[in-house]
Amino acid sequence: MSWKKLSNSQIAWRVAQDIQDGAYVNLGIGFPEMVAKFQPAGRHITYHTENGVLGFGRAPEPGEEDWDLINAGKKAITLEPGASFFHHTDSFAMVRGGHLDLAVLGAYQVSQNGDLANWRVGSKGVPAVGGAMDLVHGAKRVAVMTDHITKDGKPKLVERCTFPLTGVKCVTRVYTSLAVIDVTSAGFVLREKKPDISMDELQDLTGGKLHVDGAVGDLDVPRIEE
């Protein structure tokens, strides 16, 4: 095994390259929020947070927080020029009504028909769903960013999800630590893979069949200081 996985920052960088100028984007809480750091210069992207803000920017300096100005992760944010506020049903109209260009989410599992499991791993403890089940419906593209495998080496891209589902047939593209994969009516279609991993090795780490439709690009990502 000579291949090396992308870091989380590198996955976030790769996601950011696909977000076009003028896009309206919701970045899920946690890991997906890193995508904003790698927004390519010259593109204007408007970020949506489901608690009612379009056009927010970076976190304020410590001590400068205004706790009426937070994101869905309850972290303090700042506004960009042209920002707007709205109530919760307008916010989710932007989601379910097909107005967002892209939602980026984390995942425990993605199945080959596009089912997503990302809200709980079992029936223990206190269940909490937040906006996850809404965000998977309506955005023009629903992308997942994730490690390709679990900490103990099991595939996160699977034939069928075994964890509780967040949504059915909702994921359109998966950015992993090893590959970029579209989810189509034919199943997983490999678009890019790390040049240091072979097709066979990648297939072994993937729970569903990896289809090839046209050229498979190299997933080349610059080194990023963590």
């Binding site: 489901e50 109530h87 919760h88 049903t89 916010s91 989710f92 989601v95 379910r96 269940p127 909490a128 769903v129 937040g130 906006g131 996850a132 089940m133 809404d134 419906h137 309506g138």
Partner: peptide
């Protein structure tokens, strides 16, 4: 436990005289 967008929409429906609605969520 209610998905967040559904929670908001259920409250709006309650205030708007709409006893039920359909959502993909």
């Amino acid at each position: 436990l209610v998905p967040q967008g559904t929670l908001a929409e259920r409250i709006r429906a309650g205030g708007s005289g709409i006893p039920a609605f359909f959502t993909p969520s």
